[in-house]
Amino acid sequence: MATVKFKYKGEEKEVDISKIKKVWRVGKMISFTYDEGGGKTGRGAVSEKDAPKELLQMLEKQ
C-alpha cells in the first residue's frame, strides 16, 4: 500500500493511505485527516505535486 510523507509542526511523518479518512483541497495543497490509533485523529497536508496518485484519486472520488 502507498504511504504519504509530510511534515506536521516541524516533524517528519508518514502515514499509510488506508488510514486516511477525509481528503480536501486547500489552494495547491491537499489536506487530510487520518486515524492515529487509540481513538485519535491526526492531520496532515502535502503539496499537490508531492501527493501520491492514490491520495489524488481519493480526492476525485469525493
Rank of each mutant, 00 (worst) to 15 (best):
L59C: 10
F6V: 05
G42S: 08
G37P: 08
E36Y: 04
L59M: 14
S18V: 14
E60T: 05
A51R: 02
A2Y: 03
E60W: 03
T33G: 05
K13H: 04
G27R: 05
A51C: 06
K21I: 10
G42K: 10
P52S: 03
L56K: 08
K9E: 09
V23S: 13
E11R: 03
G39I: 13
A2N: 06
Y34I: 02
M1L: 04
G10A: 02
V4P: 01
K7S: 10
K40H: 14
Y8T: 04
F32C: 03
T41G: 08
S18P: 09
D50G: 09
D50T: 10
E48S: 07
F32E: 00
A51Q: 04
G27A: 06
R43E: 14
W24G: 11
G37N: 12
Q57F: 08
F6I: 11
L56G: 07
Q57K: 08
Y8G: 02
Y34F: 05
K61H: 09
E36C: 09
K5G: 01
K49A: 13
L55C: 02
E11D: 04
Y8C: 15
T33Y: 12
M1Y: 10
G38N: 06
E14V: 06
K19L: 09
V4Q: 00
G42E: 14
G38I: 11
G37T: 10
D50S: 07
D35M: 10
E48R: 04
A45W: 03
D35K: 06
A45N: 09
K21F: 13
V15I: 13
G10L: 02
K40Q: 14
K22Y: 15
E14L: 02
M1H: 12
S18N: 11
K7T: 12
K28L: 13
P52M: 04
G44I: 02
F32N: 00
D50P: 03
V23F: 05
Y8P: 03
G39K: 07
T33R: 05
R43Y: 09
G42F: 08
K22C: 15
K53T: 13
K9Q: 15
I20S: 01
S47G: 12
W24R: 08
I30C: 06
K7W: 11
K9S: 04
K5I: 03
K13N: 02
P52K: 02
M29C: 15
K53M: 13
D35E: 14
K5L: 02
E54W: 04
M29W: 09
D50R: 07
I30W: 03
L55F: 07
A51N: 03
V4I: 09
G37K: 05
E54H: 07
A45S: 12
E14D: 03
